[in-house]
């Protein structure tokens, strides 16, 4: 294990713990938008997909690499765009019902 890999493990643990604590505060009425928002976030793998595709294009088997890489890009992008957009739509409904009202939880 290299030092950067060690750092990644630490980042993983810290992000998971902090994330868990923050999610604890999300009221249950927002759990559906929370989950669709998480869908969008798991699309962060698009970063990996872009790098892998670019790498594959200069590799030994660029055609197969490009096909699978593009597939990963499309899938991850659906996740990102679809997830954030549908979450925004849902939270918009919450906002609409909440017009002129300040009461929160």
């Amino acid at each position: 294990m290299t030092s950067i890999q060690l750092i990644l493990v630490v980042i993983f643990i810290v992000a998971a713990v902090v994330g868990y604590l923050l999610i604890n505060n999300v009221p249950s009425r927002l759990h559906t938008p929370l989950m669709s928002g998480m869908n969008a976030l798991s699309g962060v793998t698009i970063v990996g997909a872009l790098l892998a595709t670019a790498g594959a294009l200069s590799g030994s088997n660029p055609v197969v690499g490009y096909i699978f890489g593009t597939l990963a890009i499309i899938l991850a992008m659906i996740n990102v765009a679809g997830g954030f957009a549908v979450t925004d739509r849902m939270l918009g409904m919450f906002g609409r019902n909440n017009q002129n009202r300040d009461k929160d939880d």
Partner: peptide, 18 residues
Amino acid sequence: FAVTDILLVSIGAIVGAS
């Protein structure tokens, strides 16, 4: 972890925890 990318690790961990 496999591709050594901070964003994937941190945000993936948050989603996993959620």
